[in-house]
Amino acid sequence: MSQSTASTPRGAGATTGPYPDLEALADTLWSERHVVEYLLFKLVTAKLLLAAQERRFVATALDEVERIIETLRSAEVQRGSALEAVAADWGTDAEELTLAELAARAPAPMDAVFRDHQEAFARLASEIEETANTNRQLASAALGEVRATIAALAGPTGASTYTAAGRHHSDSVAGPVRLDEVL
């Protein structure tokens, strides 16, 4: 194994264990995992805001999610660099080194660390997908409510058609609606 420490995460200094590149990759994965957990936290926060119909804060929550996604992209770049170092040590292509492969090939105790990361990332991915789906459903329902309110404020649109005799006919008979009646 190479003694390279160029991919040391978080400016923590040189890795001093027997497997510096594997340890640097594991540290990078811990950092990335923390970002993914924070992303889940923000998605759950957005879900709670949507469920509570606190629409005024939803945009802010979604902006925070976007910022975390940018942080996650940066973490992915760092992981890629750390993975390249391990791939070079092992004489293999970085694309082949999945977490399952790392857990299978890494010496003890690093194998357990990569297995733990694999399980945690799988769990987090599932939770994120579930929360994102719930958020989409809640946002869609909220949008429907906003559309209904706007339609009530604007008054009925009324379908405009022609009768069999060729005369213009509109189903709309109601006049303007007062705001306090709609809300």
Rank of each mutant, 00 (worst) to 15 (best):
Trp90Asn: 03
Ser172Arg: 15
Val58Arg: 00
Leu83Asp: 10
Val86Leu: 08
Arg55His: 08
Glu95Asp: 13
Trp30Phe: 09
Thr8Gln: 05
Pro20Lys: 11
Val86Asn: 09
Gly155Ile: 04
Gly175Met: 04
Glu101Val: 14
Leu72Gln: 07
Pro9Gly: 06
Pro107Ile: 12
Glu23Asn: 01
Glu70Gly: 15
Ala120Asn: 14
Val77Cys: 05
Ser170Thr: 15
Glu181His: 06
Gly11Pro: 06
Tyr19Ile: 11
Ala12Asp: 05
Asp93Arg: 00
Glu95Gln: 15
Leu49Trp: 02
Pro18Gln: 13
Leu99His: 11
Asp116Pro: 12
Ala6Leu: 08
Phe41His: 12
Ala88Leu: 13
Ala52Phe: 03
Pro107Asp: 02
Thr131Val: 00
Gly13Tyr: 11
Pro107Met: 10
Val182Asn: 05
His34Asp: 14
Leu48Asp: 10
Trp90Thr: 14
Ala94Ile: 07
Ile68Glu: 05
His169Pro: 04
His117Asn: 06
Ile69Glu: 12
Ile69Val: 07
Ala6Glu: 05
Thr161Pro: 09
Leu183Pro: 10
Gln53Val: 15
Ala132Cys: 01
Ala12Met: 15
Thr161Cys: 14
Leu183Lys: 04
Val86Pro: 09
Phe41Arg: 13
Glu54His: 05
Tyr38Cys: 07
Ser81Met: 09
His169Gln: 13
Arg105Gln: 07
Arg136Met: 02
Pro176Ile: 12
Ala88Lys: 02
Pro9Asp: 04
Leu50Gly: 03
Met110Glu: 06
Glu181Pro: 05
Ala108Asn: 03
Tyr162Cys: 13
Ala120Gln: 15
Thr15Ala: 13
Leu50Cys: 02
Glu96His: 01
Arg136Gln: 07
Gln137Trp: 09
Arg123Gly: 02
Pro107Arg: 01
Ser126Pro: 00
Pro156Glu: 15
Pro20Gln: 08
Glu95Ile: 06
Leu40Pro: 01
Val146Pro: 07
Ala6Ser: 13
Leu48His: 15
Glu84Trp: 05
Arg56Tyr: 06
Asn135Arg: 00
Leu143Asp: 09
Lys42Cys: 12
Ser31Gln: 09
Tyr38Thr: 14
Ser81Leu: 14
Val86His: 11
Gly17Ser: 14
Ser7Ile: 01
Asp21Phe: 01
Gln53Ser: 14
Asn133His: 14
Gln137Thr: 14
Arg10His: 02
Ala12Ile: 09
Ala142Phe: 09
Arg115Thr: 11
Ala52Ser: 14
Thr131Ala: 03
Leu29Asn: 08
Asp116Gly: 12
Ala51Asp: 13
Val146Glu: 10
Leu179Glu: 11
Phe121Gly: 04
Arg10Ser: 01
Thr5Ser: 08
Arg115Glu: 13
Val182Lys: 00
Ala87Met: 04
Ala112Ser: 03
Gln118Ala: 10
Arg67Asn: 06
Ser4Gly: 03
Val182Cys: 03
Ala59Tyr: 03
Glu84Lys: 03
Ala142Ile: 10
Thr15Val: 14
Ala122Pro: 02
Ala14Leu: 12
Glu37Arg: 00
His169Val: 07
Val77Glu: 11
Ala132Ile: 00
Glu70Gln: 10
Met1Pro: 05
Ile68Gly: 00
Asp21Leu: 15
Thr45Cys: 01
Ala154Leu: 03
Pro107Ser: 06
Leu179Phe: 00
Val113Trp: 04
Phe41Asp: 02
Glu37Val: 00
Ala112Phe: 09
Ala108Ile: 10
Thr157Trp: 13
Arg178Glu: 02
Phe57Leu: 12
Pro156Asp: 13
Leu97Trp: 01
Arg55Gly: 02
Leu43Cys: 06
Tyr162Thr: 15
Thr71Cys: 08
